[in-house]
């Protein structure tokens, strides 16, 4: 078993009403873990807690050196896509190595501003930025949204490669088909407040579970 990179135990979070109720999950090095649930079940809140943007009300949260693709792109409109994706390297005084650019079909868009490209290209640029960070675990919130079929396949392949190289990947999505293709383990989240309803292993079908 690989090193534990994400550990969430009995997590609770409320805003005006309870959102997450006793959620537990883990991601280990070399694993692709899925988190699936209907809209409004606190998945993005969980991602923000894992990223350190939100604090849990109670429970244990440990994340080792994450990179995160949020549901929103958070591209800076005053920077070209190249400068946006290179921001993490620039902040650390490192050279920006533009890996994955061709695989995500972004090479012709890097010198454009976010407002000059489509929503799908913005999504891919945001994804590229998260891939270019130094990380142990990659957390992707709805990464397939807005991607064409070829880019989805390429992303699935990149995720698998990252896991094979010893990284951990947590994919949060409502797109079952893509997730079941690659995940070693899938957590099904649902209810209000949300709880983990079921944990499926590789090859198990999640159909009807939610």
């Amino acid at each position: 078993m690989g090193e534990r990179l994400v550990l969430v135990r009995n997590l609770r979070k409320s805003f005006s009403e309870p959102i997450l109720d006793g959620v537990s999950l883990e991601v280990r090095a070399g694993e692709v873990v899925g988190l699936i649930g209907p809209n409004g079940t606190g998945k993005s809140t969980l991602v923000k807690i894992l990223a350190g943007v939100e604090n849990p009300d109670s429970g244990e949260v440990f994340v080792k050196n994450p990179s995160v693709l949020y549901q929103e792109d958070y591209l800076l409109p005053w920077k070209r896509l190249r400068d946006n994706v290179c921001l993490p390297a620039r902040f650390r005084g490192k050279e920006c190595r533009l890996e994955y650019v061709e695989r995500l079909d972004l090479e012709n868009y890097l010198d454009l501003y976010p407002k000059e490209v489509s929503g799908g290209t913005r999504r891919k640029a945001s994804l590229l930025r998260s891939l270019l960070m130094d990380f142990d675990v990659l957390i992707l919130d709805e990464p397939f949204t807005g991607l064409d079929t070829r880019s989805k396949e390429e992303l699935l392949s990149i995720i698998r490669e990252l896991a094979n190289s010893g990284k951990g990947v947590l994919v949060v999505s409502h797109q079952l088909e893509e997730l079941f293709k690659i995940a070693d383990r899938v957590y099904l989240i649902g209810g209000r407040p949300a709880k983990i309803k079921k944990v499926l292993g590789r090859g198990e079908s999640g159909k009807g579970a939610l």
Binding site: K48, A51, G52, V53, E72, L76, L87, P88, F91
Partner: peptide
């Protein structure tokens, strides 16, 4: 804020970028 938390820029980087 979510991006700033993730990228952890210095104060000067936060100011400039």
């Amino acid at each position: 804020r979510p991006l700033i938390v993730l990228l952890k820029p210095s104060k000067l980087q936060l100011y400039r970028h």
